[in-house]
């Protein structure tokens, strides 16, 4: 019992800012024409961290990152792989020279990201649940 309580406490502490802001969950969205209805967490991780850039439908996936300054990006990676923005930068820096894979395509804000998703069946992006519009399809949800 105690151990579980401790784990819970740790979890709460690490996601304190999320809870403090009372932010809603973050969702991964794709173009309705992408042919994808649902993605697992591993599939999301593979796509966004460059391991496997293909959608289950066989289409090439084009992951989109919002600006580093945005809270969505920090929250997304924190919730997805428990990494901070700095850690993520370090991760991508290692791969700069290898050239085999590259970081997700970076856009200034959520609005631009949604626009890209709406215009491309390959695009895949993350947004606040609140920002989701009907012309994109939610395939994965990260609850805080």
């Amino acid at each position: 019992m105690n151990r579980i309580a401790l784990l819970l406490l740790l979890l709460l502490t690490s996601t304190q800012d999320v809870l403090a802001t009372g932010s809603p969950s973050i969702v991964v969205v794709v173009n309705p024409e992408s042919g994808v209805d649902k993605l697992s967490k591993d599939e999301v991780v593979d796509i966004f961290l460059g391991r496997y850039r293909k959608l289950p439908s066989g289409k090439t996936a084009l992951p989109i990152d919002v600006s580093e300054a945005s809270t969505e990006r920090a929250r997304f990676y924190q919730l997805l792989v428990k990494k901070s923005s700095a850690e993520m930068s370090s991760y991508w820096a290692r791969l700069v020279f290898s050239g085999q894979t590259s970081p997700p395509f970076q856009v200034p804000d959520t609005r631009t990201a949604l626009e890209l998703v709406r215009s491309s069946p390959n695009a895949i992006a993350y947004v606040d649940r609140a920002s989701v519009t009907s012309d994109v399809k939610v395939v994965f949800e990260l609850k805080p």
Binding site: L49, G50, R51, Y91, R94, L95, F97, S98, G99, Q100, T101
Partner: peptide, 17 residues
């Protein structure tokens, strides 16, 4: 840590490095 990235991505260049 670097090797874990290389393996994770199966990045041969990084592995060679």
């Amino acid at each position: 840590s670097t090797a874990s990235v290389a393996c994770f991505l199966q990045d041969k260049t990084l592995a060679k490095e």
